[in-house]
Simulated assay, not measured.
Amino acid sequence: MVEINDAFPGFSVDDVGVARAFYGDVLGFDVREEMGGLQFSLPSGQGVFVYPKDQHQPATFTILNIVVPDIGAAVDALNAQGVVTKIYADPHSFGTDERGIAWGSKTGQGPDICWFRDPAGNVLSLIQS
Rank of each mutant, 00 (worst) to 15 (best):
I71Q: 02
I4Y: 13
D6M: 11
P111Q: 11
C114V: 14
I87E: 00
L78W: 01
W115H: 15
V31W: 04
V2K: 05
Y51K: 02
D25L: 10
T96P: 06
V75I: 09
N65R: 08
L38E: 01
G82C: 06
F49P: 00
S129P: 03
G37F: 01
F22L: 05
S41D: 15
I4Q: 11
D14F: 10
G37A: 03
H92F: 11
F94I: 13
A102G: 12
M1Y: 12
I127T: 14
V50C: 07
D97K: 09
N79H: 01
C114A: 15
G104D: 01
S129Y: 04
D76K: 09
D76N: 13
W103S: 12
V18A: 15
V68E: 06
F116H: 07
D76T: 10
A120R: 03
P111K: 04
Q109L: 13
D15S: 07
G28Y: 11
G82Y: 05
T62H: 09
Y23A: 04
D25H: 11
A19E: 01
A7C: 15
V48C: 07
V26D: 00
E33H: 05
V13I: 09
G104A: 12
T96A: 14
V84I: 13
V16P: 00
L38Q: 00
I101C: 02
T62E: 10
I87K: 10
N122T: 08
R32D: 12
P43K: 08
V2G: 08
V50R: 10
E34R: 07
V50A: 07
T62G: 05
S12H: 09
G24K: 03
F22E: 02
P119C: 05
G17K: 13
K86C: 03
S41I: 00
D112V: 10
G28L: 07
Y88T: 12
L126K: 07
V68S: 11
F116T: 14
D6I: 06
F11R: 04
D15V: 03
S41M: 08
A102M: 15
H92W: 05
S125A: 15
F11K: 09
Q109G: 02
T85G: 06
W103P: 11
F49V: 07
E33V: 06
D15K: 10
N79K: 11
A102N: 13
P58M: 09
A74W: 01
Q57V: 15
K106E: 15
P52M: 03
Y88I: 11
G110V: 02
L64M: 13
R20N: 01
L42I: 02
Q128S: 06
G82Q: 06
G110Y: 10
R117Q: 14
S12Q: 12
